[in-house]
Design a protein around this nucleic acid. Sequence first.
DNA 1: ACAGTTACGCTACGACCCGTAGCGAAAGCT
DNA 2: AGCTTTCGCTACGGGTCGTAGCGTAACTGT
Lengths: 206, 206
Amino acid sequence: MQSRTPPARTGRPRSAAADAAILAATRDALVEIGWSRMSLGDVAQRAGVAKTTLYRRWAGKNELVVDAVAELFDELVLPDGDSLAADVVGVVLQFGELLQRPETRTALMAVVAESTSDPALRLRIRTAIVDRQKRLVLQGRARAQRRGELPYETEPAVAEQHADLIFDVIAGTVVHRALVSDGPVDEAWAKALAGLLIAGLPAAMG
Amino acid sequence: MQSRTPPARTGRPRSAAADAAILAATRDALVEIGWSRMSLGDVAQRAGVAKTTLYRRWAGKNELVVDAVAELFDELVLPDGDSLAADVVGVVLQFGELLQRPETRTALMAVVAESTSDPALRLRIRTAIVDRQKRLVLQGRARAQRRGELPYETEPAVAEQHADLIFDVIAGTVVHRALVSDGPVDEAWAKALAGLLIAGLPAAMG
DNA sequence: ACAGTTACGCTACGACCCGTAGCGAAAGCT
DNA sequence: AGCTTTCGCTACGGGTCGTAGCGTAACTGT
């Protein structure tokens, strides 16, 4: 996921500290000066690293930012809820908090925007960030099925389609709420969303 | 929504043709070379207009692109369905087609990304693009309520919260599906989404 | 200890884009 | 006519880009 690490058996090894410093400096720079105005020279200076070092490890701004933000998403976990609704609310709140952090929102949207005209980058985002979080949906569904809240799918293909749809709904809705509509992702809102998903529209409005 | 038009009563009027040419050139340039590599000099040249003219009308790249893409969203209409599910499917398909066009996806995500560190731009996006499309949700709900598919809300505040939630769910989910998961927004997927929204998760999986 | 290999910091470079200023000409109004 | 505003054009200083070249630092093998 980070820079290529083909076992360089001989010679001076790459500084792991430099890697961490660069990624941290990238997040800081994104917060303070935004995506479009952030220059790689800035990042290098903040990280206490030569600009050339940065170009030796990453191909460009996009790849660097993807790596810088990817690890932020790994902190998401499925909380220990006692019902499907509680699990959904927990994940939604966590994701909402993550998107509240300036480095996350700026970086995530910036790389997604770039990926609309760069298929390789889009694939990199999916593998490094998005697909890794589908585990949350799979875990939540498995728990709900054990509780009897959801039926077991018989066709594996159908089961995968369901998981993909749920993932798009939850992730997309939270992103839209937090970044476009600019409304709070608080417990009341999360409960409303969970209620809609589980009980359906007529019940949620009743 | 476009450049300020304080009634310049005297003097040479601004060319409306130039406005249209600039906005069209902006969309073309976005498609061909992407957001980050698109320069305003390019746009001016494509539009057959001097670069200075462009800067006289728009403050910068962000504002220009917002205007260039805003009008694309006004073509969305609520189709004449005979049920709530049909209406949802119709809107989802239209929105999906809109996001399939390269200029829409690139421009929309680019300005949303920039807006994460620019509150004024975020407000401009909401007023020029997003909020105008909530009409679709309001129309669809009103129809469903007349059909008896949905209950009438008594509290206006609750009614607005419902509409905002539905809007975030539909718009966010379609955007996530089209631009992040990179899957097709076809009739089968739209029906699955509509079924989930209306009947709820357990029923949609049954 | 020593040679070999790779990463590092530093400097410098041409190329490009930015946003603005100044000019003369064009296009409308009274 | 005279006035006013916009237009196209040119030019400018300032910044970023991505790369090349150099000497030095760090680690590995014999």
